[in-house]
Design a protein around this nucleic acid. Structure first.
Lengths: 189, 189
DNA sequence: GAATTTACTTCAAAACTTGAAGTAAATTTC
DNA sequence: GAAATTTACTTCAAGTTTTGAAGTAAATTC
């Protein structure tokens, strides 16, 4: 791609991007070819980071659209992420911080809105009264369920066996990468 | 994990998270075990999205730290992402929009700051005077080079052959997923 | 050559993020 | 067992980033 080849590279073909503007003619091929990887341009960690960024944005956009469709306008995609992070468990704020790598005040901000919108229940822990325990309210659970239904549509579009295996690999590889980035951030590369 | 198993799942072990707060004791093992994947909990697309989100945040953090180290404080990680998107090529604003899936006004905002800081050169295209052509200035190129040097350190920490292959797979899988998300956003699931 | 489209930019409001400071409960120390 | 420290948050007041609605001006189409 660009960036030169100074950097450890992941074999891949040059990214074919789907234009998100204009005439709608620049559709990328459905099936990026998996052959010819070996002699294709290489991607750097920066390319990967940009891909993550872009993908996140896309996902947020999707969630936004879905929220609109569901007639929900008191929370946005960021709050939904927190909702998803809570999941079916009962967590403390601290756990949420770890799960999403948020900053404390940030989570507080989201939880306030989620609380105001009645998407979560907050109970002060009896054990440790400093600690707030969070879980989804019925409304929150319902929203998550609705989102899962929407996501189901992807399953149908994305159910090729190989894709799922690749995504599983992707998940693990990314997870390891995330840990390294985290360590680097903490201990200075 | 949570979310139930209602959703197409990617086999993976339960995420071992690295605490980003507190005593610094909760370090995740260096080498997450690759066995026992088969009978491990499953991750949903939502889990993947959260991972992307988290990873992006981590990467931004890293870039921020690096910028500070380099004594740069007139731009932040978001602007750097744009810089990286420009790369060694000369692009129009429209191309950048596509590359990063940004909104127009957003890119304008970043480019303004990058321009003010002299990280980029902007030339009005002679062909089409509406179109601005962007490329890195010497300063911008230098910054990118510096960042690559910093990133080099990762290479050493992350150079296991298998990891690189996994990341390559991850890149492709994610890229395909991104395209699908983009399509979904455009054509409504 | 008027109307439309494209390629942006600007502006103002909203959303999000950060960091410093605060509160209150738990724990440790003396 | 009281004082000091630490933990687990919350609040606030900046920032920064993102969005969306309006612009502007050059190209295209009719």
């Amino acid at each position: 791609m660009t960036q030169g080849l100074l950097y450890p590279s992941l074999g891949l073909e040059d990214a074919v991007l789907l234009s998100s503007r204009g005439d709608g003619l620049h559709i990328a091929p459905d099936q990026p070819r998996r052959d010819q990887i070996s002699d294709a341009p290489q991607a750097t960690c920066f390319d990967l980071a940009r891909l993550l960024d872009r993908s996140s944005r896309r996902f947020s956009g999707l969630i936004s659209a879905e929220l609109t469709r569901l007639g929900i306008d008191d929370i946005g995609p960021s709050q939904v992420m927190v909702l998803l992070a809570v999941g079916d468990t009962e967590v403390s704020v601290g756990e949420l911080l770890d799960r999403g790598n948020y900053v404390g005040s940030n989570i507080s901000y989201y939880l306030k809105q989620l609380g105001d919108g009645d998407y979560i229940d907050r109970v002060t822990s009896q054990r440790d009264k400093r600690s707030a325990r969070i879980r989804l309210s019925e409304k929150g659970r319902q929203l998550c369920a609705d989102l899962r239904v929407a996501a189901k549509a992807f399953e149908r579009a994305f159910c090729v066996e190989q894709d799922l295996r690749d995504l599983a690999t992707a998940f693990q590889a990314l997870h390891r990468l995330e840990l390294m980035w985290a360590n680097a951030a903490r201990y200075g590369v």
